[in-house]
């Protein structure tokens, strides 16, 4: 049965009536047309669908809409969702985005939004991560072009510029 939800994404509230089992990823892409969050596996195995929920990285492909939205007529409070589109401030890129851009840390770029979101969450928790912490924090994200070396450089660069510390 469809239910009515209020979902807060990138600071905007959206009200929609839909199937409560739908993955957050599908709602972002199919209803809100926020295409920067990508489908990769549907099972939380690859990180392409990463978004921030109250600052923490989650896999939107395996999170149902009713887990993160405010459900009309219930106590369930909505959480604040940030997608790749919400990271930059107008024309000014988020420091992690800027670091990925400066390092050219992408090939096809399909995994890149998920990588940037995951790195943003990582740097928020650990503003100056060691290489081991970068690897641990990013191992849930697959880049099939295997451009990992540049990603590590980009995250180091963002950390040096204190990108995630704010």
């Amino acid at each position: 049965m469809d239910a009515t939800f209020t979902i807060r994404v990138n600071g905007n509230e959206h009200r929609l009536t839909t199937d409560p089992d739908r993955p957050l990823l599908d709602v972002l892409r199919e209803d809100l047309h926020l295409n920067g969050t990508h489908y990769g596996c549907g099972a939380g195995d690859c990180g392409a669908c990463s978004v921030l929920v109250d600052g923490k990285r989650i896999f939107s492909c395996s999170t149902a809409i009713n887990e993160v939205a405010e459900v009309a007529g219930t106590e369930a409070a909505g959480q604040s969702i940030t997608t790749i589109e919400g990271l930059s401030n107008g024309a000014k890129l988020h420091p992690v985005q800027q670091a990925f851009l400066d390092e050219g840390a992408f090939q096809c770029g399909y995994c890149t939004p998920g990588m940037i979101v995951a790195a943003t969450a990582l740097l928020k928790e650990k503003p100056s991560p060691s290489d081991a912490e970068i690897i641990e924090g990013m191992n849930g994200n697959i880049c099939r072009c295997c451009g990992y070396a540049r990603m590590i450089s980009a995250i180091r660069r963002a950390a040096e510029q204190n990108g995630g510390a704010k």
Partner: peptide, 10 residues
């Protein structure tokens, strides 16, 4: 990459 900026902004 000519569309680098579009890749990092989604």
């Amino acid at each position: 990459h000519p569309n680098a900026r579009a890749l990092v902004t989604g």
